[in-house]
Amino acid sequence: MSHHLLQVENLGFAYPGQAPALDKVSFTLHHGEAVAVVGGNGAGKSTLLQLLTGFLMPAQGQIRVGELRVERRTLPQLRRTLGFVFQNPDDQLFMPTVYEDVAFGPLNLGVSPQDIDRVVIHALEQVGAASLAGRAPWELSGGQKRAVAIAGVLAMQPDILILDEPSDALDPAARRRLIGLLQRFEHTKLIATHDLDLVLDVCSRVIVLSQGRVLANARPLELFSDDALLAQASLERPLSMQTRGSIPNASHLRPIREIK
């Protein structure tokens, strides 16, 4: 087995009648790595993830997962390898209860009904949501929904976890828990996000996309100290790396107490 778990070569894609959303994108992902894909709105992050999971087909280039090319023919096999967590958990939690939702994937993969209970409970325990098993998805909080959505993917025991904006719409505490969760997983991870602090905590490498091209592929700390590059990709330093003075035009801001 190759040690490149995921290999993207010269990938190009355009939505009909539009400028290319991705252009000559290449990178690799090794076993056990956690890699972030960052970039401004419309940079092509979601498009890239859709291509990786086979919901879109590339116009140019190719994607390889292990020894398999991403093609229509290989999709059923690939979907055992790639676990995709959607941006909006409401789209992903479609079964009437948490338990059934987590069971959906393994049942499709042919896990027998006798084993399903163990698989589901184990996945829910991994995300600390075992107590939610009997609940309906619509009565969960945003953070709980996210955790359950991740459990649904974990239950399929994928080799690679792919997450689209996992910290989107979470409050600080839920976000903190999510970061702890992601740190604990030993899976290979690819995370598209705007949350650079999460990148700093979870990822060992960052791929910066801008207008469909790879602008940089570097370690987080190196990248986040390159202000020129960040500005080019419509990004800013993560909050934890910002001093107040570094925020442009911050000098007119006075502490709240003074204003009163």
Binding site: P76, R79, R80, N88, F94, F104, N108, L109, G152
Partner: peptide
């Protein structure tokens, strides 16, 4: 989107 989520989890 739901359909994609179903496919992603092996729906056939």
């Amino acid at each position: 989107r739901i359909h994609q989520a179903m496919l992603a989890r092996g729906f056939d």
